[in-house]
Computed example of a mutant assay.
Amino acid sequence: MMTESLKSPPRTAGVKRAEKGVVTLLTESKVYRDYERAFVAGTGLPLLLHAPEMLTVIRYVRKQENPFCTLMADTAQWCTASYNLQRKVESEAQLAPRTLKGFAGLCETSVPVRIGENLIAFLQTGQVLLHQPDRSQFEAIARILAAWGSQVDLKVAEEAWFNSRVIAPRQYEALIHLIDIFAHNLASCGNLLILNQQKPERPEISKACFFIDQHSSDEISLAAVAIVAGMSANYFSGKFVEATGVNFVEYVSRVRVGKARDFLQNPDLRISEIAFDVGFQSLSQFNRAFKRVEGCSPREFRAADTTI
């Protein structure tokens, strides 16, 4: 059993830096690239993974972008309205997906990607109509453009707007659910990336991390691992946090939760059985640690994995 407190540890500067770096790594990862390619090809909608609190208007890849939005991108008022909409939808999507309607009836959706209790990114999609466009609606849009003093060619704008992707609300809701499932998978990948990013430079700590990985299913204490590292327990505790960005208990929990994720994909294994097999001392301890790291319970994780 572990001798340090099992309370959720505060986020250290090392963890915060790691989370920022993880967004970049996730964006470049094969799992995200493959999903983005399949989602865009299958739905005709754009998809973008980005860090929270973007300071400029979010622009999708040109070939994914709604032609009407591309046309409007040089209009200052449109950019301001788009930025305000994106900030609003993100502020309302801290815990769950949120869709809001913006200028010209085009909707934007943000889906949060959370590692445990921490929001690290959003999956963004949108520039879509949830209703069939008609001429009266565009006439209202044209009046707004005229009031803005926009130089956009109205005939070109009309054609672009009428060619916007249209999806029935229930179908769009189902697509957002798929993105939400993927967001949970990305969060799991992000947790592993954080652990990998936190690989220490000191050989003594590296040796300790290897020992933890190999013995995480056993009863393991800070004092025992400190001996492996050739340090006193107090000295090792401080150096471990410096090197990995998290304390000893949190590191061991993340390693165990990572192994539990693999076992949860086997529906024949009971969750209680998995909890003890990966090294937790009780089911309640496992549930708390899993939710802290993954943002959902083991049962919810298994249900989401089955849904894919």
Rank of each mutant, 00 (worst) to 15 (best):
Asn234Gln: 00
Ala289Asp: 05
Gly238His: 03
Trp78Tyr: 14
Phe240Met: 03
Leu195Gly: 02
Val255Met: 10
Lys30Trp: 05
Pro267Leu: 06
Arg11Val: 13
Glu108Trp: 07
Gly245Leu: 08
Leu47Gly: 04
Trp78Ala: 05
Phe286Pro: 01
Ser217Cys: 12
Ala13Ile: 09
Phe211Asp: 14
Thr43Ala: 07
Arg170Asp: 13
Val225Gln: 02
Met54Asp: 13
Gly102Met: 06
Ile194Lys: 07
Thr109Pro: 00
Leu49Glu: 03
Leu47His: 04
Val23Asn: 01
Arg202Val: 09
Asn196Met: 12
Thr27Ser: 12
Cys296Arg: 13
Cys79Met: 11
Ser5Asp: 04
Val278Ile: 10
Lys259Asn: 07
Thr12His: 09
Glu36Met: 01
Thr3Ile: 07
Leu25Arg: 10
Pro52His: 13
Tyr32Pro: 01
Thr24Gly: 08
Tyr235Phe: 11
Lys207His: 06
Val225His: 00
Val249Ile: 09
Lys239Glu: 09
Leu49Lys: 02
Thr244Cys: 07
Ser29Phe: 00
Phe236Glu: 02
Gln285Ile: 07
Tyr35Glu: 11
Asp268Phe: 09
Cys107Asn: 10
His50Gln: 10
Phe138Ala: 02
Leu129Ala: 04
Glu65Met: 13
Leu193Thr: 01
Ala38Ser: 15
Phe162Gly: 02
Gly230Trp: 10
Ser237Thr: 03
Gln137Leu: 12
Asn266Gln: 12
Phe276Tyr: 13
Gln197Gly: 09
Glu53His: 11
Pro97Cys: 05
Thr125Gln: 07
Arg202Gly: 08
Lys30Cys: 03
Arg98His: 15
Pro112Lys: 08
Leu154Cys: 03
Lys207Asn: 08
Val278Pro: 02
Thr3Glu: 10
Ile144Val: 14
Thr70Gln: 10
Pro169Cys: 06
